[in-house]
Computed example of a mutant assay.
Amino acid sequence: MKQPLTRPTESNASVGHHLVSNRLLASLQPRDRALLDPYLEAVTLYQGEVLFEPGDDVTRTYFPCASTMASFVVVMQSGRAAEAATVGREGALGGIVSSGYKPAFTRAEVQIPGPALRIETSRLEDAKERSATLRDLFSRYADALLAQIIQSVACNALHSLEARCCRWLLTTQDRVNSAEIPLTQEALAEMLGVQRTTVTSVARALRARGLIRYARGQIVILDRARLEGAACECHSAVKQHFDRVLPEVKPQSILIAPDG
């Protein structure tokens, strides 16, 4: 197993600062948040860091903050891998609804580095035992996460690579809240489960149409409206279900790409 690179931030005074940038935690009422506050630790997650591998006991739960994003990745015996779901500041990775032994089924890998809040899963379970509101919130979040995974199965089977690529870029932009996505085409190819040359061809087509540009390890979305038109319906389906299931987890606006 790859050893975690996660390091605590300089001071846990930053816990409160980061807490408001995770939409799931920010939706909590003060009495419920107080059950978690003493046990939350501010950490920095690094690109490529593996939070857990299949079969690991998930002893810690992570809440990505700001633009941090991680993926659940399914790894085959051949070594090939593909993404099953992504999690950013709208959610959490770890022991969301389970109790007791929590073996991971997938790898959890950081795609976009940045701050996160971390809690021992046992502490989270204790808090849920003490609050029906917390139990309900995390159960509904698990439902929204499952919907994303189910939709991905259908999307991968039925939709073109270009539509899937557009969907992935939109989903990532929703999480990083920026038109600039710090991700290489190689990493994008791994997430989509295809060869890098295949993604390069799709990216060139999107660039030629003025939808994106890319350089030096980042992809910039230039025209979100047209990118939405090129994407399959899966992005909007997952988003609409999330908004229905978790109406209190408020969305945040998307920043526009800079000129140039």
Rank of each mutant, 00 (worst) to 15 (best):
Gly260Asn: 09
Leu35Val: 05
Arg175Pro: 00
Ile221Asp: 02
Leu45Glu: 05
Gly79Ile: 11
Arg196Pro: 03
Ser14Arg: 06
Ser201Gly: 10
Pro113Val: 04
Ser71Trp: 04
Arg23Ser: 08
Arg60Leu: 06
Ser152Leu: 09
Val20Tyr: 02
Gln218Tyr: 10
Pro251Ile: 11
Val238His: 03
Thr198Val: 15
Leu19Lys: 07
Thr44Ala: 10
Leu145Ser: 01
Thr200Tyr: 12
Cys232Pro: 03
Ser27Glu: 02
Arg209Glu: 15
Met191Gly: 11
Ser21Phe: 06
Thr59Arg: 12
Ile219Pro: 01
Ala116Met: 02
Gly100His: 03
Cys234Tyr: 10
Pro30His: 00
Pro258Trp: 03
Tyr46Glu: 15
Val15Tyr: 04
Arg60His: 13
Ala154Lys: 13
Tyr46Thr: 06
Asp56Asn: 14
Glu120Gly: 10
Val202Ala: 13
Ala237Cys: 12
Asp243His: 13
Pro113His: 08
Val220Ile: 15
Arg135His: 08
Arg175Asp: 08
Gly91Phe: 01
Leu117Thr: 03
Thr106Gly: 04
His18Ala: 00
Tyr39Ala: 14
Leu25Ser: 08
Asp243Arg: 15
Leu28Gly: 04
Thr184His: 02
Glu125Met: 07
Arg213Tyr: 03
Arg175Val: 01
Pro182Arg: 10
Asp136Lys: 12
Glu190Gln: 14
Gln148Val: 04
Ile256Pro: 00
Arg33Asn: 06
Val50Thr: 15
Ala92Gln: 04
His241Glu: 15
Leu134Gly: 12
Thr200Ala: 15
Arg207Ile: 00
Met69Pro: 00
His159Ser: 13
Gly193Lys: 02
Lys250Trp: 01
Glu49Tyr: 01
His18Glu: 13
Thr106Cys: 10
Ser253Asn: 08
Ala189Trp: 02
Ile150Gly: 03
Thr61Leu: 00
Glu90Gln: 08
Leu206Ala: 09
Thr9Asp: 07
Ala215Cys: 09
Gln218Gly: 04
Thr61Ala: 00
Arg107Gly: 02
